[in-house]
Nucleic acid binder design. Structure first.
Length: 219
DNA sequence: AAATGTTTCAACCGCTGCACG
DNA sequence: CCGTGCAGCGGTTGAAACATT
């Protein structure tokens, strides 16, 4: 078996302190990203490289937007999820200043529920024939109260396979109706638009994938 | 005001794909 | 071609915050 990415002993876990954040920021400002495995020692942090990478990408990066998602962003996430499934990093790549973790959390805590309440199956973005059990007057919906823990998202391949058995198409899925269903082997590489000044930071995704005509059309 | 239930989100875990020797 | 190590990804967890009873 592969040895763990870091020694379990002598590494901090849990929430990051301000001092740790500052050390990480200082180090990356001085030396740039990369070499996560050796970074903690070099930066004087008692964390594993993975943890440092995650902290930087999800929280400390200067180009992060943070704050509430706009309606445009919500729409885009829903559309992209309909197209890509749980490819959070690809979806986040289309949302300047947003991280995959942030998009994933927002999906699980807000957008899934929103779609369910609209009678749309968030797994395949199609209208449910059987609408979800009506929320009782106090809004606690038994299908949603279990939250992300109960979520089982079909793999994208399975979603694609299952799309044939439902002829009602949701608003989001309707974007795909013709395009993606006839594209069994979608090229999921997406460009990361650099229209926002935020994305010009050197830390942004290094590998900028290419667009497919279908996706450009879709977007 | 206290207890209990629910939601949110930062962080962790384990797996996968890729680069490299 | 194969094995190894690393970075990155998506799923999951758990503590804190918030809402309800």
């Amino acid at each position: 078996m592969r040895k763990p990415c870091c020694e379990k002993v002598d590494t901090n876990k849990g929430a990051w302190s301000k001092q740790e954040d500052q050390k990480l920021i200082d180090y990356i400002k001085a030396n740039g990203e990369g070499c996560w495995r050796s970074l903690p020692q070099a930066a004087g942090l008692l964390r594993c490289g993975k943890s440092c990478r995650l902290r930087w990408i999800n929280y400390l990066r200067p180009d992060l937007k943070r704050g509430n998602f706009s309606e445009d962003e919500e729409d885009l996430i829903i559309k992209l999820h309909a197209l890509l499934g749980n490819r959070w990093s690809l979806i986040a790549g289309r949302l300047p200043g947003r991280t995959d973790n942030e998009v994933k959390n927002y999906w699980n805590s807000h957008l899934r529920r929103k779609l369910i309440n609209m009678g749309i199956d968030p797994n395949n973005h199609r209208l449910n024939h059987t609408l979800p059990p009506r929320q009782n007057q106090h809004g606690s919906n038994s299908t949603t109260s279990s939250g992300p823990k109960s979520q089982v998202c079909e793999p994208y391949d399975q979603q694609m396979k299952s799309q044939g058995d439902n002829d009602q198409v949701s608003d989001a899925a309707s974007y795909l109706n013709d395009e993606s269903c006839s594209l069994p082997d979608l090229n999921l590489d997406l460009p990361i638009t650099t229209s926002s000044p935020l994305t010009t930071a050197p830390e942004m995704k290094q590998h900028e994938p290419k667009a497919t005509p279908a996706l450009l059309l879709f977007l």
